[in-house]
Amino acid sequence: MSDRQAIIRELAREALAEGRIDCFVGWGPGYDGSQVIPVFAKDAAEVEELQWNPLCHHNLTMFLKRKMAEPADARIGVCVKGCDSRTLVALLQEGLVDRERLYIVGVPCDGVIDRRKIDREFAAEVVEVGVNGDTVVARTAAGAEKHFDRPALLLDQCAACRFPNPRVADDIAGDTVPEPEGEPVWPALEEFESLSPAEKDGLLAAVFSSCIRCFACIHACPVCYCWDQCVNRSRTPALVGQRVETPENLMFQLVHIFHVAGRCPSCGACDRACPVEIPLYLLHQKMNKELYDMLGFEAGVNVDDRPALQAFNLDDPFGQG
């Protein structure tokens, strides 16, 4: 698995050297030994910063949205995991990115670590995370150390992932990983769906009282491509008011969820971007389950598909059971 990193670097180096791209977007080291950040490599030296490890959680296709990349006509190389590639497929389905200007390096993935699951186990700040096979070691500045079993630390979505290999790519960084068969499962929703309506109301009220309307979820979402003209900011009409309290916050998020429905593969970028840990992944999963149950549709799987809510079929089961 570790040679995926070497392969990514090699592919990036070649693409830059051959002038096929202006810039390669991957993951690299952050401000301390536990942080990974998006990295924009433009030469061989910067390529050496690129990494691949289970903390590489960012969905880098968020930088392909209009007006995110500068300059707008840059030719971009980008690393995508399985889930990331599905948002890229969604963008391609709608013609929102120019395939000709993209060089896609697909990275087969066997799970991304949920950083929050580590942080929760420590009182102090974790400044170092090391991964060796299935063992994860986390350490604070004072030297307090804990060992974890990697599978137990993965993001909830990774346990149910059926698309660990990229759905679209020009080159693949290493061998593909086994792909689970069968129908989608929704483990994150079991508990949520067992709640009564009143309990669900209570849960939503509790989590949305924390929302600070920072728009991190919307900006981090690769398929929220209206981001700089988001209807949630609109004054004419003003759908969402400036009272930053639960009813408006819930409306704000519902607008986002409904707008991305049919294009959202539950990559979880929104959930990870949220500074107050609102369970956005859970809510998007709920939307996606409804879509799947209703229309048998999963977002971002085949470039030639149309997003479910942009296609109408007379056989669609609207208004039926």
């Binding site: 570790s2 690299g28 952050g30 301390d32 030994g33 536990s34 170092e128 090391g130 991964v131 060796n132």
Partner: peptide, 23 residues
């Protein structure tokens, strides 16, 4: 804290040395 060339996880190495990032 912002490194050029961070160490990657490497199989076979002792866990303590297999840092994800940092300088």
């Amino acid at each position: 804290g912002q490194a050029a060339g961070g160490a990657g996880a490497a199989d076979g190495q002792v866990a303590a040395d297999a840092k994800v990032g940092g300088d």
